[in-house]
């Protein structure tokens, strides 16, 4: 039973991180109809910024020290760490704005496929920075609770589980309210028909910009929480984040429905539960299933759901008059 609770907690924590990342995909897709294939590189770069700010006490690319950073040899306290998190998320939003302005806006009106390829190009362009920054050793993001755990009735729960759940809850509530706001309504209109939205007085460029700013901030938030223990390689920002986007988050949002906020959260939890439980309870079959079998579990779950619901669990079914 202890194993079960530990496994469940782990699944919910990982699912929360997938949900944050899924929300990032969904918000950009909803605003601009594009899947952001640069999410991997972008999010890892953001997590590296965090590491450079709080652990190295510097600024990326700049020869200054960070005046806010904790004193030498100390790790940031909770409040200070959260302040840095907010700063990094703001930098991430700014990166999103710049990317939208420089790479996406000029492509408006071009086929969506072309835009998706542009994001893929961005992924390749940002990746060297990530490789460089992690070439010598892994980088910690200096969470105040480190690898501390709670013990409840013999079961061990890392504190970072709770942190991930709280972060996901905050992200979900923020996105939920954003969608219900007037700006969210404008975003819905743009998703349906850009030309009609413009004729309604909606500034399509601004919708694109905000979608990218929010999407980038969420991507980085997800990557930062994935850089904590116990996710591999324990507690550092690593290139492991890249495959996560493709092999986990993509199934998550396809499962949930590409344009659904609730779907990203439900999809994240479902995928993580199957992945973690399969990893835990089917491990004695590894010789038959093959090592790394749990990697394909998300895709299996996704395929089964798509057979029943082609638009995903919460996706909008396209209404067509016949």
């Amino acid at each position: 039973m202890i194993i079960f609770w530990q496994t469940l907690a782990k699944a919910i924590a990982l699912g929360s991180i997938y949900a944050i990342m899924g929300l990032s995909f969904v918000i950009i897709f909803k605003g601009t109809q594009v899947l952001n294939f640069a999410a991997g590189a972008l999010s890892m770069a953001g997590a590296l910024f965090m590491s450079i700010l709080v652990v190295d006490r510097g600024f990326p690319f700049l020869p200054f020290t960070n005046p806010l950073a904790p004193a030498d040899g100390e790790t940031a306290g909770l409040a200070l760490w959260i302040v840095h998190l907010v700063i990094v998320l703001m930098i991430a939003a700014l990166m999103g704005l710049v990317i939208e302005r420089v790479a996406i806006r000029p492509m408006v009106g071009q086929p969506l496929f072309a835009m998706a390829v542009i994001t893929l190009g961005l992924e390749i362009a940002i990746r060297p920075f990530n490789l460089d920054a992690t070439a010598i050793s892994g980088r910690s993001i200096g969470v105040p609770w480190g690898t501390e755990t709670w013990e409840i009735g013999g079961a061990i729960f890392p504190k970072s589980y709770l942190a991930a759940v709280v972060a996901a809850a905050i992200a979900f509530v923020a996105v939920f309210f954003f969608y219900r706001s007037r700006f969210g309504v404008a975003m819905r209109a743009v998703a349906f028909d850009q030309e009609a939205a413009m004729a309604q007085g909606i500034n399509v460029g601004r919708v694109f910009a905000i979608a990218w700013a929010l999407g980038a901030a969420l991507a980085v938030l997800g990557a930062i929480f994935f850089a904590m223990s116990p996710w591999p390689p324990a507690g550092t920002v690593s290139l492991e984040i890249h495959p996560i986007w493709v092999f986990r988050v993509l199934p998550v949002i396809i499962l949930g429905g590409l344009d659904s906020v609730a779907g990203a959260v439900a999809g994240g939890l479902i995928i993580a539960i199957f992945e973690i439980f399969a990893g835990q309870y089917l491990s004695q079959w590894t010789s038959i299933l093959g090592p790394g079998y749990s990697t394909i579990v998300p895709y299996l779950v996704m395929l089964v759901v798509l057979l029943v619901r082609p638009y995903g669990l919460f996706g909008t079914e396209e209404i067509r008059r016949v």
């Binding site: 819905r188 349906f192 028909d193 030309e195 009609a196 004729a199 909008t316 396209e318 209404i319």
Partner: peptide
């Protein structure tokens, strides 16, 4: 619009 551009859903 000449070709109706409503928000269909």
């Amino acid at each position: 619009f000449q070709n109706i551009a409503l928000f269909g859903q």
